[in-house]
Design a protein around this nucleic acid. Sequence first.
DNA 1: CGATACCATACTAAATTGGTCGGGTATCAA
DNA 2: TTGATACCCGACCAATTTAGTATGGTATCG
Lengths: 143, 143
Amino acid sequence: MKLSTRGKYGLYAMYYLARHMDDGPQSLQSIASVGIPKQYLEQLLGNLRRAGLVGSVRGSQGGYRIARPPGEITVLDVIDAMEGPLELSDCMTDENVCNHSLQCPVRHVWHRLTDSINRELSGITLGDMFQQPQECEANEHDG
Amino acid sequence: MKLSTRGKYGLYAMYYLARHMDDGPQSLQSIASVGIPKQYLEQLLGNLRRAGLVGSVRGSQGGYRIARPPGEITVLDVIDAMEGPLELSDCMTDENVCNHSLQCPVRHVWHRLTDSINRELSGITLGDMFQQPQECEANEHDG
DNA sequence: CGATACCATACTAAATTGGTCGGGTATCAA
DNA sequence: TTGATACCCGACCAATTTAGTATGGTATCG
């Protein structure tokens, strides 16, 4: 069971924008400098923009900025935008995959797990992440 | 964010074996009858066997049986056996992916989420699942 | 010995992941 | 108006994973 790197990259990017929210629009180049492939990040920022989490300014001196205060954006918002909504199994959303859905004990477990994950992630905002003060690189450097 | 069907199938199989623990070894055929492709399930049961969650009896009249009482097997045991241990990101296990791992706010979020998931899943046993009494088919039928 | 049933490995098609590429469009500044 | 900057967008790609299939083997019972 793994998350894709999209969630991680998206969270890095949002955290970066949260920390630079008073510095004007941040270029893709500068956001990518934490260690994310630039053209890949561009796609990911498109998702964040369409989800309403960041705004963008085109043209020279343009870039991205966070759309709401860091305390009003949760980690769940970011992960949902990057990886799509949490759907542990088809039987959670597709009514006719299973003919006893509502009584299914497996489905019941999935439901509990879904709630638990959503509760945890919606309880952490980008602002909360500032409690852990250090910057972080997205991937390896030598040294 | 999705789980593979392996976790679901594995949980179906374990639940079935838990309910038939006093009926002697259950053949692959009979376990598969809840709606899991037989040869695929065979692989999955191999994982459960190697994880020590089920025992098998070869030969005629053989089959699989649950290795411990249902109250002593958690959903986490099953999911771990089927999908491998929960590893949300490489940076959780690989020390040199990120050079500021311990201070990384993203890593901190991943850590909280990992704990939350493991806590939830280890708090549910196969025995607990009997509280939801109905059998359930693993996939679609007509009707 | 032969039917039953588990064991093991290899193979496959389709989907997903983690990018890359190439060309567009908006904006600013000279 | 032109050119540089920088976002926008869809297509493409290799590698991996997923969800099975196929095939042959091995153990056990009767």
